[in-house]
């Protein structure tokens, strides 16, 4: 029971990270109509920039603004030079151009930081583990991630539902052309949305740094899962990204944690581990295929 609870928390932690990435991606998708494969690169850039500042200054907290600023700056730059040219293009061109961006960013990171993974120093506050309920010890840093993720979710909820920018964003994801026709400066809106997405990706990247290794290719690993979240949640829907993100995070973590053990019940341990690991990796894709076959537009698709 304790084990299940612990894995549930791990799933929640992975889920909120997926949500941070998917929230930006789904808005870029839904409002600007751009498939941005390079979203994972922004995540990677946030992680590297933040970690670099954290190790040079010795302060974990200084890394947060550094990661955010770096990701947002690169995001603005990418939007102004590449993405802007892709709005009117078809999906194929967008996939290719942003695929090219992945190659470019990966190599640039290798040139600057090398291929070896780097590690983010954790402040001493987060060492050890705390007892949440009797018998359940959990690392406080993971709790911090969950808290940050949920805070961002609440913040986004207010931003989208209570502010003027949020109103434009909602309108944009429902009917882009109508917003433009009403005289809104869509270009500015696009830049803001892309910058916001980049910011969230950078935050996610830096926050996961101490848990996973900060290395080249970290963006691609999580990118596919993020796309699955966006597609299942429905393109352009923050709510969908939240529900699908948490859901997938939990499902994926549970499968990875328990499937090999279950399989060990009726096959050789080495086979069970290998098959369990890869079937769990298939899990989220299988889920996406099933959701798309039943609801081709995703769970909470915005607009028509």
């Amino acid at each position: 029971m304790i084990l299940i609870l612990e894995q549930l928390l791990n799933g929640l932690q992975y889920g909120v990270m997926l949500f941070l990435l998917a929230a930006g991606l789904t808005l870029i998708f839904g409002i600007m109509g751009v498939i941005n494969l390079a979203h994972g690169s922004l995540y990677m850039i946030g992680a590297f920039a933040g970690t670099w500042v954290a190790t040079t200054t010795g302060s974990f907290w200084l890394g947060i603004p550094a990661g955010l600023i770096a990701a947002a700056l690169v995001g603005f730059l990418v939007e102004a030079t590449v993405i802007r040219k892709l709005y009117a293009r078809d999906h194929l061109d967008q996939v290719l151009a942003t695929f090219a961006l992945i190659l470019i960013f990966n190599q640039m990171i290798i040139l600057i930081f090398g291929r070896q993974p780097i590690f983010t120093p954790l402040p001493e506050v987060f060492y050890g583990s705390i007892e949440i309920i009797p018998g359940l010890f959990y690392p406080p840093y993971r709790l911090l991630i969950i808290a940050v993720g949920l805070l961002v979710a609440v913040g986004l909820y207010f931003l989208i539902n209570r502010t003027r920018v949020g109103m434009l964003v909602r309108a944009g994801s429902t009917n882009r052309d109508m917003v433009r026709a009403l005289g809104v400066d869509v270009r500015l809106l696009y830049t803001v949305v892309f910058g916001l997405g980049a910011l969230l990706a950078g935050l996610a990247g830096y926050m996961t740094g101490p848990i996973l290794a900060v290395q080249v290719g970290m963006g691609e690993d999580i990118l596919l899962a993020t796309f699955v979240v966006v597609v299942i949640g429905g393109v352009g829907s923050i709510k969908g990204a939240f529900v699908a993100g948490i859901g997938l995070g939990v499902v994926d973590t549970m499968l990875r944690a328990f499937l090999p053990t279950i399989l060990r019940g009726f096959m050789a341990p080495s086979d069970a581990d290998a098959i369990g690991a890869s079937v769990s990796s298939m899990g989220i894709f299988l889920l996406m295929a099933i959701v798309l076959l039943i609801r081709p537009k995703g769970l909470f698709a915005a607009g028509g």
Binding site: H91, A274, S278, V279, F285, M288, A289, L292, G298
Partner: peptide, 20 residues
């Protein structure tokens, strides 16, 4: 977009199938 993503998803499933 959904077609792009679902073909990608099936391909990934086959990829992991052979890994397993």
């Amino acid at each position: 977009v959904q077609f792009i993503m679902i073909t990608l998803a099936f391909a990934q499933m086959i990829f992991f199938l052979f890994v397993s």
